[in-house]
Simulated assay, not measured.
Amino acid sequence: MADNSGDSASNNDQSVPEQDLLLPIANVGRIMKQNLPANAKVSKESKETMQECVSEFICFVTEEASERCRREKRKILSGDDICGAMQTLGFDNYAGTMKRYLEKYRQSEGGRANQE
């Protein structure tokens, strides 16, 4: 029998390759290029750095939202939980923008449900 007492990662963490935990680099590069002049180029290193940063940010916010759900004994994490986590973590400017987006998204989804 193998001794796993020294392993700090859970079995789920061990079975998922690190690359699968990151946003697709092509998408990250596309988003970066949208905010640059047409003739600008983005290095592979820049894309990889941004890929790691945004993936870590998403995990950070999601973990805070997940903790909120655990405290409230809920199993479903909602957009409101994400907005609340962003405020708790001090990202008030982003939380406000996210709340507005969430409201518009819900309105558009409501319109689609009424059309079906």
Rank of each mutant, 00 (worst) to 15 (best):
G29H: 03
G29V: 02
G29R: 06
G29N: 08
G29Y: 03
G29S: 06
R30I: 02
R30L: 08
R30M: 04
R30W: 03
R30D: 10
R30Y: 07
R30S: 06
R30P: 02
R30E: 06
I31M: 10
I31P: 04
I31V: 13
I31C: 07
M32S: 03
M32L: 15
M32G: 02
M32Q: 07
M32D: 00
K33P: 08
Q34G: 11
Q34F: 00
Q34C: 11
Q34E: 15
Q34H: 08
N35Q: 12
N35H: 15
N35L: 12
N35C: 10
L36K: 10
L36A: 10
L36Q: 12
L36D: 10
L36F: 09
L36M: 13
L36G: 08
P37R: 05
P37W: 05
P37C: 07
A38V: 08
A38G: 09
A38N: 05
A38E: 13
A38W: 00
N39C: 11
N39F: 07
N39P: 05
A40G: 11
A40N: 13
A40C: 15
A40P: 05
K41N: 08
K41Y: 11
K41A: 08
K41M: 13
V42T: 15
V42M: 15
V42P: 13
V42I: 15
V42G: 14
S43H: 07
S43G: 13
S43I: 03
K44H: 12
K44Q: 11
K44F: 12
K44I: 08
K44W: 11
E45H: 12
E45W: 06
E45Q: 15
E45N: 13
E45A: 13
E45V: 05
S46D: 12
S46H: 09
S46R: 10
S46E: 07
S46C: 15
K47L: 14
K47I: 14
K47E: 15
K47R: 14
K47V: 14
K47A: 14
E48S: 09
E48W: 01
E48N: 08
T49C: 14
T49F: 09
M50H: 02
M50V: 14
M50R: 04
M50Y: 05
M50W: 04
Q51R: 10
Q51S: 13
Q51K: 05
Q51W: 03
E52Y: 03
E52T: 04
E52S: 04
C53V: 11
C53R: 01
C53N: 08
V54K: 03
V54A: 07
V54T: 07
V54P: 06
V54H: 05
V54M: 09
V54D: 04
V54E: 09
V54Y: 06
S55D: 01
S55N: 05
S55F: 02
S55W: 01
E56S: 11
E56L: 10
E56P: 01
F57M: 07
I58C: 13
I58A: 14
I58K: 01
C59N: 08
C59W: 04
C59Y: 03
C59L: 06
C59S: 09
C59D: 13
C59I: 03
C59P: 00
F60A: 01
F60E: 07
F60C: 05
F60W: 09
F60V: 06
V61E: 00
V61R: 02
V61P: 00
V61N: 01
T62M: 05
T62L: 04
T62E: 03
E63S: 10
E63G: 00
E63W: 00
E63D: 14
E63I: 01
E63P: 00
E63K: 05
E63F: 00
E63H: 01
